[in-house]
Each structure stands twice: as structure tokens, then as C-alpha cells.
């Protein structure tokens, strides 16, 4: 069993716990002072964060195999939430089952470290299979929409998220300071930190709206978030990545900006369907997709950025 909690990751997790502790303490303090305000949402959110971080710690301690299975399970939950959310046709029911089957297969490629199949399985083979299986289902009305929604869901929740797991097994030309686990920690921490940073900058200075899709998102929040995340990316890079500071700067800006795109993408899906949350699995956050939205795009871009410059 390989422990992914190498010294830097351990320290990083320790830092995360410290942040969580500080957040809890400040909420309790504010709650005591502002009796008339409702903090239930914030409390639920922080509590859920606590569970997520605790589970992440356990999984990291259990090693690469456990982490691949855990990320695979998260993919399954996200895909299930997506299929529950989007309207489907009655004839698509059995085809959805085949789509679910892509989850274990995709993560098996990760497990055996077969990059070639990992990178083409869903974009090429799953697309082909779903398109053909839907033809066999025999209903032409709504065919394009069915193939489109199904495959796009697989891309976002299975293909893209599986990049998180592939970080653990990706061969590199240089030795990583904290192994694959370090890369995983780096991208997870920066993406989630960026969500919070964009939210805070937006709350403090937000004035100019970026898009009609998400009225809460402002240019001030976006730019403030990108700057803070980039600085943090440069500070953390020597401990978790092979990046020198220019690379770290690029990686940080990349994670922050595509994180934003992932966020508004899921917002657009919800707006299109007329619902506020993607689900209710995570109290205070909404659904799994609400939490993972920014990662769906940040994970693949971060992997390919790293692989382009340092991949073996």
C-alpha cells in the first residue's frame, strides 16, 4: 500500500484543516454576535466541507488504488446526478446503463496506466457506441439531442474528472517533489481555493457582470480570484510540482480561469433546465456537480499542461 500522504501533502492537508478550523471559529463567533442573521446555510456548508476533507484524508492515506476507486465513485455520482437532471427519453433508459458502464472501464485504463486508451476511450469509442446503440433503440425523434446530452455528460463527469486520477499514475521526465499525490493535491486545493477566492472578491468589489447566465459572477471577482490563485500557485509549486515560477504562474492562471468556465457551464445547464441546485447530496453546497463544476475543466487542462512540459 502506497501512502499518498507524503510529507508535503500531509502538511498541505494540515493547512486545510487549519483553514477549516479558522472558518468554523469565525462562523461561531459571528453567529454569537449577529443573533438575528441566519447562518444555517453557512454552517451546513462548512460541515459538509469537513466531511469532504476527512474523506479525502482517509483516501489519500489508503494509497493510489483507493484514490482511483474513490475518484471513480465520485464520477459515478456526478454522472448519476447529470442523468437525473437532464430530460431523457423513455427509449434511452437501457442506453444510460451502457453509459454508466463507461465509468469502471475508464478508471481501469487509469489503473493500468494506459494513457493511449484513457485518452480516446470516451471521446472516440463511447461516442461511437452510444450513437450506434441509440440507433438500435429505434426512435429517431430526439436522436441528436439524446446522443449529445448523453455523451457530453460522459465527457464532463467521467472523461474530464478521470484526469484527476490519471495524475497519480502519469510518468514524468523529472522527479516529482511529492509524487502524483502532490499534483492531485495541488490542483484540488487551487481549484477549490479559487472558487472561494472568486466568491470573496466578487462579494467585496463585484460590479461588472461577466455573463447573464450567472448574475453573481463579476469581472472583479474573476480577476481577483485569478490573481490570488496564481500567487498561491507560485508559492505552493516547489512543494508539489516540478514547476519553476513561470510555469507555476501559468498553471495557476489556467486553473483559475478554466475553473470559472467550468463553474458557469454547470450554471448554464441548471438555468436551461430551470433549477437552482444540481442536487442535494452535499448540504449547503447543493449537488455533486455544484461542487465539482470548476474541476470538470480544470482537471484535464492541468494534466495536459503538466504532461506537455514534464510528461515522459
Amino acid at each position: 500500500m502506497d501512502n499518498l500522504l507524503t510529507d508535503p501533502v500531509w502538511l498541505g492537508m494540515f493547512g486545510v484543516y487549519a483553514v477549516l478550523g479558522t472558518a468554523t471559529a469565525s462562523i461561531l463567533l459571528l453567529k454569537g454576535r449577529l443573533q438575528d442573521k441566519d447562518f444555517s446555510e453557512l454552517v451546513a456548508r462548512t460541515k459538509t466541507w469537513g466531511y469532504i476533507i476527512l474523506m479525502a484524508t482517509i483516501v489519500l492515506a489508503l494509497g493510489t488504488k483507493a484514490a482511483i476507486i474513490a475518484i471513480g465513485f465520485i464520477s459515478f455520482l456526478a454522472l448519476k446526478e447529470y442523468f437525473t437532471l437532464v430530460p431523457t427519453r423513455k427509449v434511452d433508459r437501457r442506453v444510460l446503463l451502457w453509459a454508466y458502464l463507461c465509468v469502471p472501464i475508464q478508471y481501469y485504463w487509469v489503473y493500468i496506466g494506459w494513457y493511449g486508451l484513457f485518452i480516446v476511450f470516451i471521446p472516440v469509442y463511447a461516442l461511437l457506441f452510444i450513437a450506434f446503440r441509440l440507433i438500435l433503440a429505434g426512435e429517431t425523434s430526439g436522436y441528436i439531442k439524446a446522443v449529445g446530452t448523453m455523451h457530453w455528460g460522459l465527457m464532463l463527469t467521467v472523461f474530464n474528472l478521470s484526469h484527476l486520477a490519471f495524475l497519480l499514475v502519469m510518468p514524468t521526465t523529472v522527479e516529482l517533489p511529492a509524487g502524483g499525490g502532490g499534483l492531485l493535491f495541488y490542483v484540488l486545493f487551487l481549484t477549490q481555493f479559487n472558487d472561494v477566492a472568486q466568491y470573496f472578491w466578487g462579494k467585496l468589489f463585484g460590479k461588472h457582470r461577466v455573463t447573464e447566465i450567472s448574475p453573481g459572477k463579476s469581472w472583479e471577482g474573476l480577476i481577483g480570484g485569478i490573481c490570488t490563485t496564481t500567487i498561491l500557485a507560485i508559492v505552493l509549486a516547489p512543494f508539489y510540482t516540478p514547476f519553476t515560477w513561470p510555469f507555476a504562474m501559468a498553471a495557476g492562471a489556467l486553473i483559475a480561469s478554466v475553473g470559472f468556465i467550468g463553474d458557469v457551464t454547470i450554471s448554464a445547464v441548471k438555468r436551461d433546465l430551470g433549477t437552482k441546485d444540481s442536487g442535494s447530496l452535499l448540504p449547503g453546497h447543493g449537488g455533486v456537480l455544484d461542487r465539482l463544476d470548476s474541476l470538470t475543466l480544470a482537471a484535464p487542462l492541468f494534466l495536459h499542461f503538466t504532461r506537455f512540459f514534464f510528461g515522459a
Partner: peptide, 12 residues
């Protein structure tokens, strides 16, 4: 509440 109903078989 938001519930994803089935798409009607042949809307045309």
C-alpha cells in the same frame, strides 16, 4: 420542485 420528466416520444 424541479423534476426531469421524460421527453415526449414524438413532439412533432
Amino acid at each position: 420542485q424541479y423534476f426531469a420528466d421524460y421527453i415526449e416520444e414524438n413532439p412533432l
